[in-house]
Design a protein around this nucleic acid. Structure first.
Lengths: 109, 109
DNA sequence: TTTCTATATTGCAATATTACGATATAAATT
DNA sequence: AATTTATATCGTAATATTGCAATATAGAAA
């Protein structure tokens, strides 16, 4: 079908999946790393940094924004993007728990 | 096109994206949480836990395995899956860095 | 060896994603 | 006002994902 049965899962599972999905493209990982590295939250320099056309970058930024991973603010005729720490923290919190709390290894693995 | 320009990005960016992509579906988040919760690395109980058909679960497990997030071992005629901690650690390491190390907030956000 | 149980694979329809040229929008500059 | 600069949106082709019925595989039990 190509359609996810979202309603069958919890809100947290859907949110974590949405964030992970947004990070599930190397260009978007590169954008996050770029935003981390620059001192001010530089805007369209991302387009110059990445090997993709401007509309493609714009689309990737939109997806990161929809997932709550970044936010943008208008600066003159440019737009300034930066990382949204709360979202990343929430995501890290859940993924960290994937490290099971078992003290002993299971029999099989 | 629907095809990602992987060769334009670093191996690390591609690996992180692949792991994130594997976590980018609520069913696969649910599987990871289930594996974390059970004491032994229970196998096909996942099929009973999740609201999806057996072939669909099998496909999701395959994707988690391909991304290195879980591993399976044969136990009689069943298969026992469990979490691969190294992969999760590697992923957490990179995503944690998305929390920029800036001491001061930028002007715009 | 037939049957049962557990899991994987195949095939396919519905839908989503990726990439980008063309074009729109909107503020800054001339 | 016309032009430049920065970003977003639209439209579309190529490809990927999701879900499952049907079927295959393989070990266990009868």
């Amino acid at each position: 079908m190509g359609i996810t049965k979202s309603e069958e899962f919890t809100a947290q599972q859907n949110e974590v999946a949405a964030i992970a999905k947004a990070l599930g493209h190397p260009a978007r990982v590169a954008i996050m790393q770029f935003l981390m590295g620059v001192d001010s939250c530089i805007c369209g320099d991302i387009v110059n940094e990445l090997p993709l056309a401007q509309p493609t970058i714009s689309q990737h930024l939109k997806e990161l924004k929809n997932a709550g991973l970044i936010q943008g603010s208008v600066e003159g005729n440019a737009i300034c993007y930066c990382v949204n720490h709360e979202t990343i923290n929430r995501f890290l919190g859940v993924v960290t728990l994937f490290q099971s709390k078992k003290k002993f290894k299971s029999a099989c693995c």
